[in-house]
């Protein structure tokens, strides 16, 4: 199965990855090849087969509602690209 330039552009927007013209051409062939590989799936007979999202048939454990975390803002913000007054800064968000 091939993937169109439009699909690649759309997916790149969803994934928030900038791609330029030259990259799109390369991706058309690379992603197309990967999708060809993946298309073998369509041949499998999966009628009445339950999807498996996890290898072990386990159930979720739940945590007691107790505060276990302490304030580590200083340590976390020491490795942040931009902070001020304890806030993470990003270019202005327009609602």
């Amino acid at each position: 199965m091939s993937i169109s330039r439009e699909d690649i552009e759309k997916v790149a927007v969803l994934a928030r990855i900038r791609v330029d013209e030259a990259q799109i051409s390369a991706l058309e062939s690379d992603l197309g090849n990967i999708l060809n590989l993946v298309d073998e799936l369509s041949a499998a007979d999966t009628a009445n087969i339950e999807p498996l999202s996890h290898p072990l048939d386990a159930v979720q454990r739940l945590r007691t509602d107790e505060v276990t975390e302490t304030n580590q803002r200083e340590a976390f913000q020491a490795i942040a690209p931009a902070t001020e007054d304890g806030l993470y800064l990003v270019p202005r968000v327009i609602e």
Binding site: K10, V11, L31, L35, V38, L41, S42, E50, P51, L52
Partner: peptide, 20 residues
Amino acid sequence: YALSAGYFDAYYLKAQKVRR
């Protein structure tokens, strides 16, 4: 792409069934 609207069943769901 595999998770996007219109492809989820053919790719992701199918792959999970094959996984089983």
